[in-house]
C-alpha cells in the first residue's frame, strides 16, 4: 500500500544515485587541470609529484580508480580532500548543517509568504490587490536570487548599513557548538543571544534564496486556487454559509496545493542549488561556499563528495514532495 509505494520510490532512487556518482567521476577526470600541480609549489621535484599521485591513487587507470572509488563509497568513505588534507565526509558533515539551516529557513519564508500572497490574491480576485500581487510576483520572478543578494548587500549593507552581510554569527560572540546546527542547538541550550545573531545573519541570504521560489509558488498556487473556487464543491460550501475566506481556507486550499506542490518542487531544487552562489556572496560558511573553493583548487574528492551530497538532498526533496502529495490527496493513497 502507501508505505510500499514510498519504499519503492526510495529504492528507485538508488539507480539515480549510481548514475550521479558515475557521471561525476567521469566529468571530473575529463575537465582540464591537475590537482597535484595545484597543491605543490613550483619547487616540487618530479619524484615528489609522483609520490603524491600515488598517495591519492591518481597513478592508476581510470577504471581501476572508479572501482576503488565505488568500493570506498559503499563503505561510506568519501576519500581525503587534496586541498584541505582532511576526511571529505567529516568536512561535509561539518558544513551540511549550516546549509541545511539556511535552506530550511529560506523554504519556510518562501512557503509562508507564497501561500499568504496566493490566498490574498485569490480572495480579492479581479480587484486591485490581485493586480498588485500579480505585478510584484512578475518582477520577483524575473530577477534571479544572486541579483537580489547583491541588491540587498548594496542597499541594506552599504547604503543603509542595518543588516549584517557577512558570515553566520557575530564575531564578538563566543560559541562552542557540538553539532554545527547553531540555530537549533543554541535555542535548545538557552543561548538566545546566539540564536538571535544566527537568525539575524540568515535573513538577507535566506530572503534572497526564498524570493524566486516564493514568487513561482504564489503564482502557481493562486491560479490553481482561482480554478478551485469555481468548482461545484466551492459553490456548495458557500451555500453552507461559509464566508469567502472560509471557502478558500477550508475547501479550496488543500485541493489547490496538490498541483502547486508538484509544480514548485522543481523550483525548490533551484533554491538548494542557489545556496552555492548565495553562500559565497554572503561569506556564509556552508557547503556551497566550500564547493566553490573545492572547484577553484581542483579538489576532486571534495567536489565528488559535495555533488553526491547535493544529489542525495535532491532525491530526498523529491521523495518528500511525493510524500506530501500522498498526504494531501486521498485518491493517491489506494494506488
Amino acid at each position: 500500500m502507501t508505505t510500499r509505494y514510498l519504499l519503492n520510490r526510495l529504492l528507485l532512487a538508488l539507480p539515480t544515485l549510481f548514475g550521479v556518482v558515475t557521471v561525476v567521476f567521469i566529468l571530473l577526470r575529463v575537465v582540464p587541470g591537475d590537482p597535484i600541480a595545484m597543491m605543490t609549489g613550483p619547487g616540487a621535484t618530479p619524484e615528489d609529484i609522483q609520490h603524491l599521485r600515488a598517495h591519492y591513487g591518481l597513478d592508476r587507470s581510470l577504471s581501476a580508480q572508479f572501482v576503488i572509488y565505488l568500493g570506498q563509497l559503499a563503505m561510506g568513505d568519501l576519500g581525503t580532500s587534496i586541498s584541505l588534507r582532511q576526511d571529505v565526509g567529516e568536512l561535509i558533515l561539518g558544513r551540511l548543517p549550516v546549509t541545511l539551516e539556511l535552506t530550511v529557513f529560506a523554504m519556510l519564508i518562501a512557503i509562508g509568504c507564497g501561500v499568504c500572497l496566493a490566498i490574498v490574491g485569490s480572495y480579492w480576485r479581479s480587484r486591485w490587490p490581485e493586480a498588485i500581487i500579480d505585478s510584484v510576483i512578475g518582477i520577483i520572478v524575473a530577477i534571479p536570487d544572486f541579483l537580489w543578494a547583491l541588491a540587498f548587500i548594496l542597499i541594506l549593507g552599504v547604503v543603509i548599513p542595518v543588516m549584517p552581510i557577512f558570515g553566520r554569527l557575530d564575531l564578538a560572540l563566543e560559541y562552542q557548538s557540538y553539532t554545527e546546527f547553531y540555530l537549533i542547538e543554541s535555542a535548545l541550550r538557552g543561548r538566545f543571544d546566539v540564536t538571535g545573531s544566527v537568525l539575524w545573519h540568515m535573513i538577507l541570504p535566506g530572503v534572497a534564496l526564498a524570493l524566486p521560489l516564493m514568487a513561482v509558488g504564489a503564482r502557481v498556487l493562486k491560479s490553481s486556487l482561482n480554478v478551485e473556487m469555481t468548482q461545484d464543491y466551492a459553490a456548495l460550501a458557500h451555500t453552507k454559509g461559509f464566508s469567502r475566506l472560509q471557502v478558500i481556507l477550508k475547501e479550496a486550499l488543500r485541493n489547490a496545493l496538490i498541483p502547486a506542490v508538484t509544480l514548485t518542487g522543481v523550483q525548490l531544487t533551484f533554491l538548494i542549488g542557489g545556496t552555492v552562489l548565495i553562500e559565497r556572496i554572503f561569506g556564509y560558511p556552508g557547503l556551497g561556499n566550500m564547493a566553490i573553493d573545492a572547484v577553484i583548487n581542483r579538489d576532486l574528492p571534495l567536489i565528488q563528495g559535495i555533488i553526491i551530497t547535493f544529489a542525495i538532498i535532491f532525491i530526498l526533496v523529491n521523495f518528500l514532495i511525493d510524500l506530501i502529495n500522498t498526504i494531501l490527496n486521498p485518491r493517491l493513497r489506494d494506488g
Partner: peptide, 22 residues
C-alpha cells in the same frame, strides 16, 4: 450567510463534483 445552510440550502446536481474530494 447566516441564512445559508441553516434556513436555505442546496441539493446540487452532480454528486460526483459537489463534494470536496480531499
Amino acid at each position: 450567510r447566516g441564512l445559508l445552510g441553516s434556513e436555505i440550502a442546496l441539493i446540487p446536481q452532480d454528486p460526483m463534483t459537489a463534494l470536496n474530494p480531499v
